[in-house]
């Protein structure tokens, strides 16, 4: 490996996908940890260490070890961080998913400003950064990507899995239908079909309340959908939250763009894109969740995050590739002939 190569491997953009996985894992681990902390808080509130079963004592000890450095009064202090990505309380501030706010407005047909404002930060972030929530935070994405890896192994083992191309705007229809149903039934029904909300809840049910609920069945079905209908199909075609974030991110400022001068048409980016987009042909669009998988996959560093309002129009074949050189030769020959 030459020196410049070594330098290139240390570039941040090569590590972006790992960084994103770190973020996804941290969110997921937090969602597992919170129910455990909740149980621990119940034990401490009850002053009942002596009455606990051995397994419960172990949990108590581990949680005490984890939190002991931060608090002397876990029963109260640990309430500082509660909730899920659907709606969370963080050190006195509340932050909610924009879909939760939109659904609550649809179901109750009223505006409750203290709640609407809790979605302000994610709202602005999505308008600037697009589906960044989908790619970097969503606890369902964490599981869907693992599920997609499983799909790759199955394919490698010779099992044929379909990857149908469905109608992309389907998810906007799901979002609209969900909101109309919320208004008709007077109940926040989108909460029952939105995977990250389901995951947050079901982890709490499963860990703290001793059993998964009906939402877990729905989530398992979406995992099957991804294998039996289309790769990452739920996120791409059905997720109401993904639809909302796509709409919000229509004019996002942060975009991945291809530097055509460095591209060699190797198609690794297109293979890396689980959403089936076309980074090599400059086809990103509002579905792109800025996940950076294509950036990390690119061997020539031709894909970059750029601050632009619009995608580039198709730039044709990469300048380091065969197709482009052939084109050049043809045009040069034509010039010489003329």
């Amino acid at each position: 490996m030459s020196r410049s190569d070594a330098k290139r491997h240390l570039l941040l953009r090569r590590q972006l996908n790992k960084l994103r996985w770190l973020s996804l894992s941290l969110v997921f681990v937090t969602l597992v940890l919170l129910p455990l902390l909740s149980i621990y808080q119940n034990y401490t509130a009850a002053h009942a260490y002596d009455l606990l079963e051995p397994g419960q004592k172990q949990l108590y000890d581990v949680m005490e070890w984890l939190t002991g450095a931060f608090t002397d009064d876990p029963a109260t202090d640990l309430n500082a961080v509660k909730g899920t990505t659907w709606s969370a309380s963080l050190f006195g501030y509340k932050i909610s998913d924009p879909l939760a706010v939109v659904s609550q407005i649809a179901a109750s047909l009223t505006l409750y400003w203290p709640f609407v404002l809790t979605a302000l930060v994610p709202l602005v972030a999505s308008m600037l950064l697009g589906r960044i929530y989908c790619g970097w935070i969503c606890p369902a994405t964490f599981l869907y990507e693992l599920n997609d890896n499983l799909g790759s192994w199955l394919r490698r083992a010779g099992i044929q899995l379909p990857d149908r191309v469905l109608w992309r705007p389907l998810k906007y229809l799901v979002l609209a239908t969900g909101l109309v149903l919320a208004a008709i039934t007077g109940s926040v029904v989108t909460a029952a079909i939105y995977p990250p909300a389901i995951i947050g809840r079901e982890l709490y049910y499963g860990i703290a309340l001793g059993g998964f609920g009906a939402g877990a069945v729905f989530f398992l079905l979406t995992l099957l959908f991804d294998h039996l209908v289309a790769r990452r199909g739920f996120c791409r075609y059905l997720c109401p939250g993904g639809a909302l974030y796509s709409l919000l991110g229509r004019f996002r400022v942060l975009r991945i763009q291809r530097d055509v001068a460095n591209c060699n048409d190797c198609t690794k980016c297109n293979a890396a894109c689980q959403f089936g987009l076309d980074p090599m042909g400059d086809g990103f669009g509002q579905e792109c969740n800025n996940c950076s998988a294509c950036i990390s996959a690119c061997p020539t560093d031709a894909l970059l995050f750029k601050l632009r309002i619009n995608d580039l129009p198709a730039q044709g074949p990469g300048h380091l590739g065969h197709a482009y050189r052939k084109q050049r030769h043809v045009s040069r020959d034509e010039n010489q002939a003329a």
């Binding site: 119940n42 179901a107 703290a208």
Partner: peptide, 22 residues
């Protein structure tokens, strides 16, 4: 209540008496 509750589950998480079920 049904129209406004977004099913975030935080009420159950903070309940020190584990009274709240879903």
């Amino acid at each position: 209540f049904v129209a406004n509750c977004i099913r975030c589950g935080k009420c159950g998480e903070v309940c020190p008496n584990r009274s709240i079920q879903f």
